[in-house]
């Protein structure tokens, strides 16, 4: 083989690249795996050999039994689900509607509103917490999931409007004009032509909206800390705070919080990463 020297050189480089990436992948995953693995071991085995996989001997579900007995993880999980999905639905719908109005129609105050909404991308809503709590108290919404949903919609809207506007701008003018010539109402144009067209962008927005909501601790802690309205993140935090020394319980509760997210992540990672790396988010 004549071209061997060149090839060898390349192979060496490729091997190095793989070695580095593999190392970093291990660094990224190992801590999580250790937690999950140890959640399935007895207390003794956790301490004796933390890196070992559970064996027939050391396998134990005692942690999970305790967790499920002492805290209502099902409820927390359901709360998180409801809050995330409802917020997501409204962020997508209201965000698309607002993005459409701002990009399609010229009216007084258009620019002002666009800038006002754009500010929300950079300025964290958290800074208004003091007043949000006041407001929720006066609306009698403290310790309700509604309070969380409202705040999360407000939190997610700016980025949604921003990304969706970019996409709506790319919809060919002819489509809308053809519809208007046929006397189709503005509402119908939006719901039957525009919405279906921007579905791919919706997926991107969904990812960016969902993750921070699901993982948030701040607002659940402040607006809805009651037992019946805790989200999974808050639930785990409170639970672990209470049972710090019960290793089995702590490991199991962490596993319960991690695994569903990882499963969903693995299923949707393709779309998610495409969303992250797509040109829409510059």
């Amino acid at each position: 083989m004549i071209s061997l020297p060149g090839l060898k050189h390349n192979t060496g480089k490729t091997l190095m690249t793989h070695a580095v990436l593999l190392t970093y992948t291990v660094i990224a995953l190992f801590p999580i795996l250790v937690i999950i693995v140890n959640a399935f071991k007895s207390r003794k085995a956790i301490f004796k050999d933390p890196l070992a996989l559970p064996t027939l001997d050391s396998f134990s579900l005692e942690g999970f039994e305790q967790v499920l007995g002492r805290a209502d993880f099902g409820l927390y999980f359901g709360n998180s689900m409801i809050v995330t999905l409802v917020s997501l639905f409204f962020v997508l719908l209201l965000g698309a509607m607002a993005a459409w109005a701002l990009t399609e129609y010229k009216f007084r105050g258009n620019l002002f509103l666009a800038v006002l909404i754009a500010m929300g991308i950079m300025i964290p809503i958290r800074l208004g917490t003091v007043s949000i709590l006041n407001l929720m108290a006066s609306l009698d919404l403290v310790n309700t999931l509604t309070a969380l949903v409202l705040v999360y919609i407000a939190q997610g809207l700016p980025l949604a409007v921003f990304i969706l506007s970019e996409f709506i701008r790319q919809v060919p003018k002819e489509l809308k004009e053809a519809a208007r010539c046929d006397n189709v109402s503005e509402y119908k144009i939006f719901f039957t032509i525009i919405l279906p067209l921007i579905r791919p962008a919706m997926a991107t927005v969904a990812v960016f909206t969902m993750i921070p909501i699901w993982n948030d601790l701040w607002f659940p802690l402040i607006l809805a800390p009651g037992e019946s309205t805790q989200t999974i993140t808050l639930g785990v935090q409170q639970f672990i705070g209470q049972y710090v020394t019960d290793w089995n319980a702590v490991l199991s509760s962490l596993t319960l919080a991690i695994v569903p997210v990882l499963v969903l992540y693995v299923i949707f990672s393709r779309q998610l990463i495409r969303g992250l790396t797509s040109g829409a988010v510059k």
């Binding site: 965000g95 509607m97 607002a98 929300g120 809503i125 208004g128 007043s131 919609i153 407000a154 700016p158």
Partner: peptide, 18 residues
């Protein structure tokens, strides 16, 4: 119709509190 619902929530729970 398109703008009001989103804007209302955004202003009430983000801009006004800030």
């Amino acid at each position: 119709f398109f703008l009001a619902p989103g804007l209302l929530i955004y202003v009430t729970f983000s801009v006004y509190p800030l």
